[in-house]
Simulated assay, not measured.
Amino acid sequence: MKIFIGNDHTAIEMKNKIVEYLENKKYEVINIGTDSSSAVDYPDFGYNTAKLAVENNTLGIVICGSGIGISIAANKVKNARAALCYDEKAAEMARKHNDANILALGARVIAVQKALDIIDVFISTSFEGERHQNRVNKLNNL
């Protein structure tokens, strides 16, 4: 599976550890985030990551300091359903009930190991469909 990952300057260390972790699990990770500590604008990276994930019908991960701003940017892409998750239960429910395709994380508010645990749940959980499909359709048509 191909996974797109984007980040701002606050999340370089977390992004690099996530990329290494996912590549060790044999995922193809496409890094479109910054690798520079110079300040950048998270909306650019959130939007571009979500756009590529949606266009390629795959998952994306976006990371900024809190995860809030970059998730807002990602959700500007039609058919992107970015979910900001601080724990595994949120990641599970985002996938099961909302068919979330973009995971947003906050590098300043969660530890790297916690982020990896959240990612494992996000990637391994499937959308339940059925009664949730109509709601996801509504989200996509907003």
Rank of each mutant, 00 (worst) to 15 (best):
E92V: 00
R81L: 11
T49A: 15
N75L: 05
M93A: 13
V54H: 07
G46S: 13
L103G: 08
S36I: 15
K89P: 00
N101C: 10
Y86S: 05
C64G: 11
V77L: 04
A82L: 03
I30V: 11
L103K: 02
A80Y: 04
A82H: 00
Y47S: 14
V29F: 04
G67Y: 01
G65S: 04
K89W: 14
T58R: 13
S38T: 12
D35C: 05
G46I: 05
I68H: 12
A73G: 10
S71K: 01
T34P: 04
H97R: 04
V40M: 07
N48D: 07
I61F: 07
M93G: 02
S38N: 12
L59T: 05
C85Y: 11
E88H: 04
L59W: 02
A73V: 06
E88Q: 10
V54L: 12
I70A: 15
A39C: 04
D41E: 13
I102N: 03
D87E: 15
N75S: 10
A90Y: 07
C85R: 07
A80W: 03
S38D: 13
G65R: 05
E28T: 11
A50Y: 01
G46F: 08
D99K: 10
V77D: 10
E55K: 13
I68G: 14
G33S: 09
G65Y: 06
K76Y: 09
I32C: 09
S36F: 05
N101V: 10
V40I: 12
V62W: 07
A50E: 01
R95W: 00
E92N: 05
V62P: 01
T58N: 13
I32V: 12
S71E: 09
V62G: 07
D35Q: 05
A80C: 14
I70F: 11
N56M: 10
S66H: 08
G67V: 06
L84W: 02
N75H: 09
K78L: 15
L52Q: 13
H97C: 03
H97F: 00
I70L: 14
E55P: 07
A53R: 09
